[in-house]
Nucleic acid binder design. Structure first.
Lengths: 235, 235
DNA sequence: CCTACCGATCGGTAGG
DNA sequence: CCTACCGATCGGTAGG
């Protein structure tokens, strides 16, 4: 097999920066680039097939590498799976969480977080979501992969809870709102979207998730806005 | 291996009824009993490992049979998976749906269906649920197993929608209730229960699902009952 | 319902 | 990062 495609992939990941001084540094940089490219390919594969369907052989084929070449970067299949979980979490954080920090605390952030979350899950209707498929695959399988997955999900849900708490403190939500309860119901709307749209292929699911969120706000919110009017009918 | 355990399993499935007249009928009956026992074992295994993790070899070991002995009853792994889906649906129907037909139409059935559904999913927090794990495993894999799974789930959700529709007709729900929307939100509560209780092992999830249902009824219902009071705080 | 097998694929190792 | 291999397991088949 030609080695050219490999160099191209590695270069595409890190860009063509200034060359490192020593031979060792160059080799180490190339190793990191290759590893990043492997994780990227593995994440795409795991999104479609699930974390448990992720095999070193399939990743090697995509990368045009030997199985043991891929294996050498991780030392165990579990390490590859964990790297995939961390990468997915990192992207989720960048796309969903980070942008809302520019907004004022309270309801604006709660709404923007849901909007960004929805955007991601709506995108994942096509590709699959490893936070959802992984939860099912590893709910009964203790170990480091399950731990990495649960830690990522809990970190995200805790962040959402803090945003809801701030909104309550700001007086944007009723003072007696149960934070866990509200986030539970919102989480359910997201999970139903993934289930009904991706598995059942039922049309209108995205609108239903949004309507459900408006419904939640209409019960727990304090501002009688247009969005918070009881949304009995949709489309 | 002793053959005694096998006979005992087959007898336990169908009971010790009157013996059939002919030798062929006896053989056929025993075949059916064995097949039922295999499906039962496979359902238990698939609940824990998922439909896609169900292997003929593992079922054979549980049954103390050879792999090809199990295989002979189904002709293909897919047929075993489909049998498991049908058996799961049959039990779901018996436990969740059938009992409510004794109740009056309208809100009582809608509430009892949710209560029975909850009871089942709460039980499945320990064992796993193939309607949920199967949805994730087969959401991207066309074929007869996916079809059987989607058909079962759709049959159940349609039954729930009809119950909600009757409740609206009876005047137990607001006249402008969107049936699909209400069932979507209830479905989300169930999915969040499975996710948060089984995967995240978060305590209090069952109470949150019930509170969420009360919340849904408080918005869509017409009777201002105790259960339908806005449930902002739980436990 | 069995034994005995098939080709494919899995994660992982040896040795370079 | 490679070739060449290991033992285990997979679904499925042949032949009885």
């Amino acid at each position: 097999m030609s080695q050219l495609p490999r160099r191209r992939v590695a270069a595409a990941v890190a860009g063509e920066g200034a060359a490192p001084a020593t031979k060792e540094a160059r080799a180490s940089l190339k190793g990191q680039q290759t590893k990043a490219a492997i994780v990227d390919a593995a994440l795409r594969l795991a999104s479609r097939l699930g974390l448990e369907g992720l095999s070193i052989g399939a990743v090697a084929e995509i990368m045009q590498m030997s199985k043991s070449g891929v294996f050498a970067h991780f030392g165990a299949r579990e390490e590859l799976q964990i790297s995939v979980v961390r990468e997915h979490f990192h992207r989720f954080e960048q796309e969903v969480f980070m942008p809302v920090l520019a907004l004022p605390r309270g309801l604006p952030r709660v709404e923007a977080l849901f909007a960004n979350w929805m955007k991601r899950v709506a995108f994942e209707i096509e590709s699959g979501c490893i936070f959802i498929s992984g939860a099912v695959a590893f709910d009964d399988q203790p170990g480091p992969v399950r731990d990495a997955l649960a830690e990522s999900v809990n970190t995200w849900l805790d962040a959402y809870r803090r945003a809801v708490l701030l909104a309550r403190d700001e007086g944007h939500l009723r003072a007696d709102v149960d934070i866990d309860q509200m986030v539970y119901e919102i989480h359910g709307l997201i999970l139903a979207l993934h289930y009904e749209a991706r598995f059942l292929k039922k049309p209108g699911s995205i609108a239903r998730a949004h309507a459900g969120f408006a419904h939640v706000l209409s019960t727990y919110g304090t501002a009688p806005s247009a969005a918070a009017a009881a949304p009995a009918r949709v489309g």
